[in-house]
Design a protein around this nucleic acid. Sequence first.
DNA 1: GTTGACTTGTTATGCTATAACATACGATAT
DNA 2: ATATCGTATGTTATAGCATAACAAGTCAAC
Lengths: 169, 169
Amino acid sequence: MPDMPPLGDTGLAFVRHDHSHCAKDTLARADALSNARGARMTPVRRRTLEILLESHKAMGAYDVLERLVADGFGNQPPVAYRALEFLVEQGLAHRIRRLNAFAACMHPGEAHVPVFLICTSCQLVAEAPADDVRGAMDAAAASIGFVIERTNVEAVGRCPACRGNRACR
Amino acid sequence: MPDMPPLGDTGLAFVRHDHSHCAKDTLARADALSNARGARMTPVRRRTLEILLESHKAMGAYDVLERLVADGFGNQPPVAYRALEFLVEQGLAHRIRRLNAFAACMHPGEAHVPVFLICTSCQLVAEAPADDVRGAMDAAAASIGFVIERTNVEAVGRCPACRGNRACR
DNA sequence: GTTGACTTGTTATGCTATAACATACGATAT
DNA sequence: ATATCGTATGTTATAGCATAACAAGTCAAC
Ligand SMILES: [Zn+2]
Ligand SMILES: [Zn+2]
Ligand SMILES: [Zn+2]
Ligand SMILES: [Zn+2]
């Protein structure tokens, strides 16, 4: 694969790339990770992850549900919410609170602080590497004796492609 | 005021302090700011800010609404949402997405990147100063050509008081 | 006093999320 | 084998969050 970005594939979402390979690879890593942990990657859960991996956009639970229904799974909200909850717990997906939506994790198994860059034009969501963001937050918190357990760090703005295009996609 | 924290009152929410003074002062600054800008601080809007300022907790729109109703304002959701929207636009309140709730800004008029520390035990929310958090985010974004417009940075964890108490408050 | 911009009230609806219970499945132990 | 137990899924019902759209009131400028 000659014109793929290097392994530090930050912001891959905003770069033209072989997404089918990208998705397949991430799914494989997720499977391996689940196996190694003894977590049960059941059909609904795996299908839910596949659906999230179809694009670098975030999906609402009800959108995921629609897709699951089409595949013959139960058609009530808990079906989607439970599968998504499992994926989030396993670090295979992230919840994007700003969008009330979920996105597949592009770095499953790698220790990383998810920082999301959300393009307001094309709706793509990239997971940026920002370990120093977490460092800065820990420092600020520590200065007042607060101990951080979990974080949500999200930013909306415009991706390189959309800033280039007048009309955007 | 001898035992008040110094002006860099970060994490004030987690420190015992003269909150009535804290609230009155913040409200006064908000009023001044609105005046200076020609923004219309109408009765509902001002009352909404007062309600948010009653504590350092975040409040859901429907909780705010209940209070507004008790004061004789309209009792439909848009009444609360519109007032809250105004306050957020004017930088007098912040939306805490993780909680689907709103909190008064404790630094109105000061340029600041809101970083919220949310205690899972006592529900208090502090606005920490973390300009280097924004710096780190901008750097990460810039490295892939993304331009950040707005951010949500939130952390849940435990505040100093709650870590000290076995049973918490 | 009429116009026009803005604010508030009100109706109605849509979207997001979870509690609670029933059923099915799969592994383990007797 | 079959009883048992934990886990996963299906299903019903409801709770919680948010906004569109229109009507009615307010206020200042012309
Ligand atoms: Zn991809
Ligand atoms: Zn991730
Ligand atoms: Zn205070
Ligand atoms: Zn603030």
